[in-house]
Design a protein around this nucleic acid. Structure first.
Lengths: 148, 148
DNA sequence: TTGACTCAGTTCGGATTCAAGACTTAGTTA
DNA sequence: TAACTAAGTCTTGAATCCGAACTGAGTCAA
């Protein structure tokens, strides 16, 4: 298998990874969730080459994860915003941040704090069951193929 | 910035991405969560070159995500198992699967079904607040830097 | 005891991708 | 007229990827 075959696999991981399974794509998504929208801001924050940023943004737009909107005319300038499909990646980002906070933070601890606006608490993201609401760990889940 | 600098960034996303931000690493982790443990099985399932598998497995072992255990002597053969640090990636995988199920599945729908053993229901993974238990979306979260 | 087979890798080398820096375009400000 | 801004594109050497072949340590069948 080549990675170009990933989108055609009958597996949701493969199909997702085809979109987000790239270092810089994930870093750009991080910044998007922090409110960054302009090309130049990505460049300044990430310090990577413009060609990589242009390429990744274009792919995300093609996938429907981002929308490219004009924010001024003369000259026309665009900004990149998460679509609903892109916003739906929030649990993925939260899970990645949380794992990094717990398992890869230095002595200084987590660099960022997340506050839940509704309850006012600083929180950790928890994966739970849509049906009963209980917290879910790897051992609680039984996987089987969906009957066709 | 080069990607080799990612582990040193003061950002949990960057530090996590340095470990899991790679297509084949994510595909290997998928199989690990499905119970695959042996080199030959990864090769058969993924159909990619042995050198990639060997490289990714070694990196995951170095990072403490996997443990390399002997399962027989004469000749000695090893298998790869998720450590607790690796099992902690479960929410990341579930979030990725779920996004793929919802936003990238074909007409046939999600290929796999997840059942919560405790409540017996087929479920979707939901990201919720560790403090109040409510479901969390991107708009519910306020991010700020942790004071030093 | 020769040959085929298994599992778990390593090595090699050509093709692909990455990524820094220079260049482009279109308009603005000094 | 020159410098500046935002958002890219182009070029080119370097790094990485990855398929194919090879290695090694043992088993099994004839």
């Amino acid at each position: 298998m080549k990675w170009t075959d990933l989108p055609d696999e009958d597996c949701s991981v493969a199909r997702s990874v085809a979109v987000i399974g790239d270092r810089w794509t994930l870093m750009i998504l991080r910044d998007l969730f922090l409110g960054v929208r302009r090309f130049e801001a990505f460049e300044r924050r990430l310090g990577i080459s413009r060609s990589i940023i242009a390429d990744r943004l274009k792919k995300l737009v093609d996938e429907g994860v981002l929308r490219r909107d004009a924010y001024q005319e003369n000259p026309v300038r665009h900004e990149y915003r998460l679509t609903n499909k892109g916003l739906a990646l929030h649990p993925v980002m939260m899970a990645i941040v949380h794992w990094g906070d717990v398992h890869r933070a230095g002595a200084a601890g987590a660099p960022l704090i997340h506050r839940h606006k509704a309850c006012g608490c600083d929180f950790a993201p928890v994966m739970s069951c849509s049906e009963c609401g209980d917290r879910i760990t790897a051992r609680d889940v039984e996987v089987r193929a969906r009957p066709r």
